[in-house]
Amino acid sequence: MEEVNLVAESFKFMFLGMGVVFIFLLVLIEVMKLQAKIITKYFPDEEPVTPVTKSSKDEEQKRVAAIIGAVSEFRKNKQNKV
């Protein structure tokens, strides 16, 4: 008799427990969505300053020079192999 009662009781625990966990998380999800909406609208992260704007002409030229050097080196190697 008592055994049956206990099992029934534990089923009630399950409904209560799973119910509360789900309600908590569902509310949490809604809050997360709301918070994302508000924050991305009113307090967006400042965009990090992109390095492209920083690079001056000199750097650009250096980069091109490096690429040319690498390519010519690569070609030389290839010729050597053949």
Binding site: L6, V7, E9, S10, F11, F13, M14, G17, M18, V21, F22, F24, L25, L26, L28, I29, M32, K33, A36
Partner: peptide, 28 residues
């Protein structure tokens, strides 16, 4: 955010096994 539901569903492990534990004779 909706993946939070999964974190809730997995808690069934707790409450499901609660029934099992009671069934094999532990008190609540």
């Amino acid at each position: 955010p909706k993946t939070a539901i999964l974190g809730g569903a997995a808690q069934f492990g707790i409450f499901g096994s609660l029934i099992g534990a009671v069934a094999i004779g532990f008190d609540l």
